[in-house]
């Protein structure tokens, strides 16, 4: 037998002899409890990781300005939304419960909301058809205008009582009005009305700024900014926060008199 083999054999014997004196019984209950604790920790870590990944993904989509789920409010930053109360909404990222709308993709064009004046609830069949046409025309205008006139187009809403599509835009001669008229041509019963919103670009910029700083307000002052609206009458930006009473003065001081603070 070679010297190397002899040494390896002797090593095996000595290792076995050294380990032979070690023994003990397993603390099964403690091991089970330690295993359960670790399983719980893993579950928590996985949940936190999943939330973090989703948050990072949503943030990346927001930064890239594409994708995102329209209903989640996590799409491109500060997409204006027409609400039944007649205001455009800029929702903080991830704020649930607000319908968002845009036109970068067809999927994000969900609906065109009412301007706040609805027709009778027990409308006859012909009115229902007119309402359907109005909705379809609104979607067509929204899609076209958001894609081709994004810098000047504000929002569209439905005045079902009048059978009218209200298009709010910068009144500069951009060709948007003619394009909108052409877009609703397939629905001859639909009437169009254009409303000037010349201050929309600056208000949108302000709304985006406020939304971007919502996290800072929450972290440093405990003010939770739920969402930001651009008033359809063009008179300003509305910041919605549960702390409206206490934070109103500071928010107005920060962003100027165009800002209104509400609950």
């Amino acid at each position: 037998m070679r010297a190397e083999d002899e040494f390896e054999e002797e090593l095996s014997v000595r290792l076995g002899a050294r380990a032979a004196g070690i023994g003990g019984s397993p603390p099964l209950a403690e091991l089970r409890e330690a295993g359960r604790r670790r399983a719980r920790r893993r579950g928590v870590v996985r949940a936190v990781t999943a939330v973090a990944v989703l948050a990072v993904g949503a943030g990346a989509l927001t930064q890239l300005g594409g994708g995102g789920n329209a209903a989640s409010g996590a799409g491109p930053a500060a997409t204006p939304v027409v609400t039944p109360t007649g205001t455009a909404v800029v929702t903080p990222t991830g704020t649930p419960g607000r319908t968002s709308r845009g036109a970068e993709t067809d999927e994000r064009v969900k609906t065109v909301l009412s301007c706040g004046r609805s027709g009778p609830s027990s409308a006859p069949a012909s009115d229902q058809q007119a309402g359907a046409d109005l909705v379809a025309a609104g979607r067509a205008v929204e899609r076209m205008a958001r894609q081709e006139y994004g810098d000047h187009y504000f929002a569209t809403c439905l005045d079902t009582a009048e059978g009218t599509l209200v298009v709010m835009r910068n009144p500069a001669p951009t060709g948007l009005d003619a394009a909108a008229s052409q877009a609703v041509a397939p629905w001859p019963t639909v009437k169009l009305r254009f409303v000037a919103a010349p201050s929309y670009p600056s208000q949108l910029t302000l709304a985006k700024e406020i939304r971007a700083e919502a996290g800072d307000w929450s972290a440093t002052k405990g003010v939770y900014i739920a969402w930001v609206e651009i008033a359809l009458d063009g008179k300003g930006v509305i910041v919605h926060t549960p702390q409206a009473e206490t934070a109103r003065a500071e928010i107005v001081r920060q962003y100027g008199n165009l800002v209104s603070v509400g609950l």
Binding site: I22, P27, A34
Partner: peptide, 27 residues
């Protein structure tokens, strides 16, 4: 435990190591 003892060189470390490994595998 004997294997862990030879790897670590210490009885207490061996128990810690084995118990840690068992807790990791348990879930």
């Amino acid at each position: 435990l004997r294997g862990a003892y030879l790897i670590t060189g210490d009885v207490h470390d061996a128990r810690d190591l084995l118990h840690d490994a068992l807790a990791r595998v348990y879930p």
